[in-house]
Amino acid sequence: MVKILVVDDERDIQALFEQRFRKEIKNGELEFVFAFSGEEAITYMKDHDQEAVLILSDINMPGMSGLELLRRIKEKYEVPPPLVMMITAYGDTENYSLAMQLGADDFLTKPVDFTALKEKLKAKLV
């Protein structure tokens, strides 16, 4: 069972992930938890120690941005840090290089290709 924390300010992302990964969830391969802001994600991480091994985060969110969240995660949870994959609608080089500089493990652009995401998750987590 691998726990993945999804961070996005769009609430419907939860229903979407739950349906897209329904087989994996059913089979007990993956478990998803959701946070709807950077702050919420930080709180969850604090409360649940290091349960989530992978974090999928949107970059553009009101309040704490995804990049700020990434920075804090990589600063605080040093050994072993959870994998963090950034998702953004702005697939520009600046965001990309900044995310990479802060230690992101991958960088996806919206709209998310779920087939590709599944493969990536399998590759990273197996």
Partner: peptide
């Protein structure tokens, strides 16, 4: 464009998932 992109992504994703369902 950005604001439209988000709902459109949902429309596409949910319709794809619905077909699978």
């Amino acid at each position: 464009a950005h604001e439209i992109q988000n709902p459109l992504n949902f429309v596409n994703n949910f319709s794809e998932v619905s077909k699978e369902l």
